[in-house]
Design a protein around this nucleic acid. Structure first.
Length: 264
DNA sequence: ATGGTGGGTAGCCCA
């Protein structure tokens, strides 16, 4: 059994106490973090080592973005894609070399895309779509069992947001983003593990804005985080869940962890 | 219709 988790942590240094709490509670074999917001030299390697997570693949950046995959089972880093073509640290790819040997694990942080869903008025929105198009070209050539996880910053289904109609013009749920993400999905035949285990139209969110007074009261959530697998790998996913309670921990991230267990 | 909060950094950017 190999247990993999993904969490947009919004500063790994600030939130190391709750990361440790999560690792002690869930004991995933591998944890993929997004938005670590630090350079590699300041990454809390020792804190992870002390918890038994002695394998690391860190692609950091000062102040913004950044991803890290930490593990208690052996892995080897083998790729860092720049799908935005601007030098931002938004991806790291590893291959498991012990348990789950041969499985490729891609950790990605897709750009949020700014506030205005228009390429001309808001260059960041265009960059988000371009990032997805480059990922799609990459996905067409995948020839190994692959799991891609992370903050996709898109909630594709109606039941992935608290109010579908109200969010149609809100970046993360616009038709153009959903269509672009669908093309990425079709390019490899990805299986959306989250939605294979928590079936539509059931509510499924992974992010709640900090701007709500009480995130739970209005429950204005969105499913921005995903775990997508190659079809043959998806068939080996035996459990999947969302650690929603982490949103209530002290100084929480605005995202919560996703967990999938594989029988490999 | 608007602004609401949070993190990193250093005099605003990003989410």
């Amino acid at each position: 059994m190999v247990k993999i988790a993904s969490w947009n942590i919004n500063s790994v240094r600030l939130r190391m106490p709750i990361v440790a709490r999560f690792l002690e509670e869930e004991a995933p074999d591998v944890l993929c973090l997004q938005e670590i917001k630090t350079v590699e030299s300041l990454f809390p390697y020792e804190a992870f080592n002390a918890l038994g997570y002695v394998y690391h693949a860190v692609h950091g950046q000062k102040g913004y973005h950044g991803v890290a995959t930490v593990s208690r089972i052996p892995l080897r880093e083998f790729s860092r894609h720049d799908w935005q073509d601007n030098g931002e640290a938004r991806h790291v790819g590893v291959e498991l070399t012990g348990p789950g040997q041969g499985m490729v694990l891609e950790n990605v942080y897709i750009p949020a895309g700014g506030d205005i869903p228009d390429r001309d008025e808001n260059p960041k929105f265009g960059q988000k779509l371009d990032f997805l198009e480059r990922m799609t070209r990459w996905a067409e050539r995948i020839d190994r069992p692959t799991l891609i996880v992370g903050d996709f910053n898109i909630a594709p289904l109606e039941c992935d947001v608290w109010n579908h109609k109200q969010l149609l013009k809100v970046v993360s749920h616009t038709p153009i983003e959903v269509e672009t993400l669908q093309r990425f999905r079709d390019a490899h035949g990805w299986s959306d593990i989250g939605r294979e285990h928590i079936l539509a139209p059931e509510r499924y969110y992974s992010w709640w804005s900090y701007r709500a007074k009480d995130w739970k009261a209005g429950d204005r959530g969105r499913r921005l985080d995903h775990m997508w697998a190659s079809p043959e790998l998806a068939r080996q996913a035996v459990a999947h869940r969302v650690s929603e309670h982490c949103r209530d921990w002290p100084q929480p991230s605005d995202h919560v962890p996703l967990i999938t267990e594989f029988n490999l």
